[in-house]
Design a binder for these strands. Structure first.
Lengths: 335, 335
DNA sequence: ACCGTTTACGGGAACGTTTCCGGTAATGAT
DNA sequence: ATCATTACCGGAAACGTTCCCGTAAACGGT
């Protein structure tokens, strides 16, 4: 691994290091003729500028970092792909880290990214969500950063979010319209803004239809959590006629348990999920769910970040709200 | 973003830069007393050694790179998590890149990783698989690298793979035992070793049971591909009584199309997949599939890499074959 | 012919570390 | 008391770039 350096190609051509550097950064102060010569022989010698050294002197890396809480479900990978699309096109490379829903590793990830001098960060918070101070410092120190999906209220940064309130409203209303009056909401982690919003949408739909607001049970974003809650409901003999879960995995876990215990879906219990995991349309019965524009979320976040870097200084954080749709499927259909 | 540097803490304590550096690295040549003082005030000042500068001088990064062809399905994320578990524990950070099944971006990813001086690489090849020469050069230049899952024969590197032959054999035999004599194999991308192995397992099972080997149709690792192939079979009126797909998404895509066209699963067509995506047990009907020890694959690859780095030089590439199991579910059950 | 301006390039400092090479004071042996 | 050894620490080069500054040549105008 002996990298050929800029000096090697300089001495080979009997030019100065500066000239070679200029050829690669195609600035002024170089004759196109020599520039092409340099570029040509550099290629022959297999020379590529060392980005480490470049980062050190320029204090920037042409890298962006994306930090997500998990990527076993397809949601985050899809967002990442969207962000990559626009970032790669602009000549940036994208570093991905996952914090495994742990605030601690999330913080380590952030440190690693900062230490590696990424030019900006795209992050979705973990459920634990204990690093807000850290992020405030980061933002204060002018690190460009945009949050998506998992955001909190009081961070002065750009955010791209989904209109959770609205779509939770629609999802709930869909159940109410079918005649359900006993809907249980499996709400998300309580310190996430999106949980609050979805919960409020749930409430609003009830109010509109003048039906007492249903029960709410905290439930994490995993199948296991959904299973746990469903089991609990069965055990306590408090099974409702419908469930609106704040996540698809939660909905699917619950559905599995109910099915296993002899409940018919949607006849005995109607179920609606949220987030449109790739599972939704393939499970039995197909799951009604709110789909989010994953790729679009990633793209928008990336664009926001680029914009923020361009307008450095005179920039105001903005929040972009994206639209979705409710995919009605068998799991919530009136029989 | 004004990093406090080593100089800042040195001048604050009226010691030399070397001393501070020693406090952070070596144990010799420094009094434990001063070492602790340095460490303490460094922490107070919020100083962290700049890894960029360190990389530049040391020519190593304490970073490892993982390159996967995609991560929309849960297979690769799970492998990554496994690898991270062991690598993080050893003090390394893990950089992840996805090549989107494109050899070109795969190559760019490799370049980025190398340029960023990762100490080693864990990679699973794209289907296109056109960078073998590139990898040969890399290996020749002594870059530690281990391949997994998507490997090719003639790369002199460590590999951790799955016994595709064996499990394809079992999966096929499972169908044969149920009395199927007309099984179509949706084979994977042809330049991947695993495709060949699964295909040969398919053959072997037929031979053992003295039944003519069934048809084979090339089929990519995506639902769309599965749908395409299934549609084609229906159109040509060549629908078999059973299908053994080399991937779960392929199997699921096909299943969807068959169901949509009125075929009953498993009554009209039995289906077996491969890879145990998280979908398998939740779709309708639940999909029989070969499950791979994803996390274990990641861990093993990581360990192999660490080992290779420790025994630098006197190291021989080894291939580790991991075991799996066949999860028999409704999609292939005799009715 | 003279002077200012432009063009093209070289020299060298700087980025933040690590690490080798010395040097000084303290320690131990003789 | 002298000398060799040890324990700590400082100075400075090096890693591979970028970029500011300086300057020689070429050029144009008077």
């Amino acid at each position: 691994m002996k990298h050929t350096t800029i000096k090697d190609v300089a001495s080979k051509l009997n030019v100065s290091v500066s000239t070679v550097s200029r050829a690669f950064n195609d600035k002024y102060d170089i004759r196109t003729e020599t520039k092409e010569l340099v570029l040509k022989t550099a290629k022959e010698m297999g020379y590529r500028p060392n980005p480490i050294a470049r980062k050190l002197i320029q204090q920037r890396s042409l890298n962006f970092g994306i930090i997500v809480p998990e990527f076993v479900n397809s949601f985050f990978p899809e967002v990442i792909i969207g962000a990559q699309e626009v970032l790669l096109a602009e000549g940036y490379q994208v570093l991905i880290m996952q914090s495994n829903e742990s605030s601690e590793t999330e913080m380590k990830n952030v440190d690693t990214m900062v230490d590696n001098m990424v030019d900006g960060l795209i992050v979705s918070l973990t459920c634990e969500n204990e690093n807000i101070e850290k992020y405030k410092e980061l933002i204060a120190s002018e690190m460009p950063i945009v949050f998506f999906n998992r955001v909190v209220d009081d961070l002065p940064a750009s955010k791209v979010v989904f209109d959770d309130y609205k779509w939770a409203f629609f999802a709930t209303e869909h159940l109410l319209v079918q005649g359900h009056t006993d809907i249980v909401h499996l709400s998300g982690p309580k310190n996430l803004l999106l949980s609050k919003n979805r919960s409020q949408g749930f409430d609003a739909a009830h109010r509109k239809h003048k039906i007492p607001v249903g029960r709410k049970i905290p439930c994490g974003f995993s199948m296991e959590e959904g299973e746990r809650v469903a089991l609990d409901l069965i055990k306590k003999d408090e099974v409702p006629t419908a469930i609106f879960a704040a996540s698809d995995p939660g909905a699917i876990g619950a559905m599995k348990v109910f099915k296993d215990h002899g409940y018919a879906i949607p006849k005995d219990i109607a179920i609606v999920g949220f987030s449109e995991s790739s599972l939704a349309e393939h499970i039995a019965p197909p799951l009604t769910s709110v789909s989010q524009p994953t790729r679009d979320i990633g793209q928008t976040a990336a664009k926001l970040l680029l914009e923020q870097i361009d307008t450095k200084g005179l920039f105001v954080p903005q929040t972009i709200v994206l639209n979705g749709r409710l995919n009605v499927r068998e799991s919530s259909m009136k029989v």
